[in-house]
Design a protein around this nucleic acid. Structure first.
Length: 478
RNA sequence: CGAGGCGUAGCUCAGUUUGGUAGAGUGCCUGGUUUGGGACCAGGAUGCCGCAGGUUCAAGUCCUGUCGCCUCGACCA
């Protein structure tokens, strides 16, 4: 398709300056606003509505699988954070501390949760006594704080909203199954609801979560060729259980440590949606999470019967989708641009000419296709087109990822690709941390994951030439 | 935390070199004409020039300090 004319002059073109394009979108679509605390953002109604839709869908799926929501404190005593060695080493550099209560200096300082493993563990140690208490399938929706040095809206903020699942199981097998199950919940959500293609895999030792035995991830490729870790699921084994002294009497009346998992997805995924689907006209939202799925724009509103007909359509569509009508005094052209900026999947135009013919015009956000729809068949067509948009943006994203995924057999090829292109690099790896560090130092790329779907590119590690263990995805990450 | 850039109207910015009445575009308010891709006309409101000191008859402009924001690195969801 020929390149579409850019209609929104205020948005920087993504080819010109991707970073600026991203910031422009986030601001112009009124997703968030900066606050007076560095790195903390105000999520505005339109942005929060997206998050609420994400929450609604995922929360439903978690609950279907037996998980229960809880609320843990925001403050963690320092001694509690210290209990698991790897964990504290991983998080200590970026935690914020509360040192005073009113004017009194605290005996022990309290950290603002960067994640809640320690709190859950302490609680689990109190409530888990018997195999009959297991499994415990907990989740909480909350915000956490990590003192990041450089921040970006949604992608990396000091405070961010997320969901953290924490579960305890009788056996390692059951916990591993849970870890895998939740990774699949995220992967299905990303692919089917958000229309973001993801690579499922395992993190290397170097990249795994602080304190985990194994970390699983879904990795997505953004428009600019950088990778975004979109959700993670961790298998903890009984490491935390030992550190926090969580034990239960098993079926043989013996004391045993339970096996644990945790898993999460954050508001960062909103950044992923923007950078996967957005274009030079603004946001493009997957229908499943779009706060407005259909925007009705009456044309020549003052003309007899237009508003009445538009209202009729509004009421009809309310029962099948999230629909709104804009009756403000702005010109139609202004409204077209405005709702494109906001990524609304379908625009419905209804004017005097349409009413005469018993039809309306529906325009898809993803490809701007104009479709004339008979009003008698409206509901079916709207549902069909919403699904078409979902498929359309998924396929476009998948095609782009495929075009931006390269294969390298040796260091020269990795260098060549890394220096001239943006995207994923698939290459064999021997399993050593040294090879990972080498790529990071020399080329600034990190291992994204060991994909579940392995390919045998060659028998040798592309970096050192030793015997290869796995095929890895490499890339520059957000 | 290292290197660079920027703080002036709600927003984007000019004005700083060479000190001399605070500017533009856009947005906002009023009224009217318009309405199938960011309309037009007329009128109107809006500023401790980031903050604190200093130099000067006079500071948005020069000096010192300070705070904040953005970009690129290092670190991380």
């Amino acid at each position: 398709m020929a390149k579409q004319k850019k209609m929104v002059e205020e948005i920087t073109s993504m080819d010109e300056d991707f970073v600026k394009w991203y910031t422009d979108i986030v601001k112009k679509a009124e997703l968030m606003s900066y606050s007076s605390v560095k790195g903390c953002m105000i999520i505005q109604p339109y942005g929060y509505a997206i998050w609420e839709n994400i929450q609604k869908i995922l929360d439903g799926r978690f609950k279907e699988l037996g998980h229960e929501n809880v609320a843990m404190p925001m403050l963690i005593p320092e001694s509690l954070l210290q209990k698991e060695k790897d964990h504290v080493e991983g998080f200590a550099p970026e935690v914020a501390w509360v040192t005073h209560g009113g004017s009194e200096k605290l005996q022990e300082r309290l950290c603002i949760r960067p994640t809640s493993e320690t709190l859950f563990c302490e609680h689990f140690s109190h409530i888990i006594h018997s195999w009959r208490d297991l499994p415990k399938l907990y989740n909480q929706w909350c915000s956490v704080v990590r003192w990041e040095k450089t921040t970006r809206p949604f992608l990396r903020s000091v405070e961010f909203y997320w969901q953290e699942g924490h579960t305890m199981h009788e056996t390692a097998e059951e916990a591993k199954k849970e870890t895998e199950q939740m990774l699949n919940v995220y992967a299905n959500f990303c692919e089917n609801d958000l229309a973001i293609p993801v690579i499922k895999g395992q993190k290397t030792e170097k990249e795994k979560f602080a304190g985990a035995e194994a970390t699983y991830t879904i990795e997505a490729l953004m428009h600019d060729g950088k990778a975004l870790q979109s959700a993670t699921s961790h298998y903890f084994g009984d490491g935390f259980a030992k550190a926090f002294d969580i034990t239960f009497q098993n079926r043989e009346n013996k004391s045993e440590y339970p096996h644990q998992t945790s898993w999460g997805i954050s508001t960062r995924i909103i950044g992923g949606i923007i950078m996967t689907h957005g274009d030079d006209n603004g946001l493009v939202l997957p229908p499943a999470i779009a706060p407005i799925q259909v925007i009705i724009i009456p044309i020549a509103m003052h003309k007899e019967g237009v508003i009445d007909k538009a209202n009729e359509i509004l009421n009809e569509l309310k029962s099948i989708c999230r629909v709104k009508m804009d009756t403000s005094e702005q010109t139609p052209g202004w409204k077209f641009a405005e709702y494109e900026m906001k990524g609304v999947p379908l625009r419905l135009e209804i004017g005097p000419k349409d009413i005469e013919k018993g039809q309306c015009v529906i325009v898809r956000r993803d490809n701007r296709e104009k479709i004339i729809v008979n009003l008698e068949n409206l509901e079916n067509e709207v549902l069909r087109l919403l699904e078409e948009v979902r498929k359309g943006i998924y396929e476009k994203a998948l095609e782009r990822r495929n075009n931006m995924t390269y294969t390298a057999k040796n260091m020269d090829e990795i260098k060549e690709i890394s220096n001239s292109k943006q995207g994923f690099i698939k290459a064999m790896w021997c399993g050593s941390k040294e090879c990972e560090e080498k790529l990071k130092d020399e080329l600034g790329i990190t291992s994204r994951c060991i994909p579940f779907h392995q390919e045998n590119i060659s028998d040798k590690c592309a970096i050192c030439g030793e015997k290869a263990k796995n095929m890895l995805y490499w890339g520059k990450a957000y």
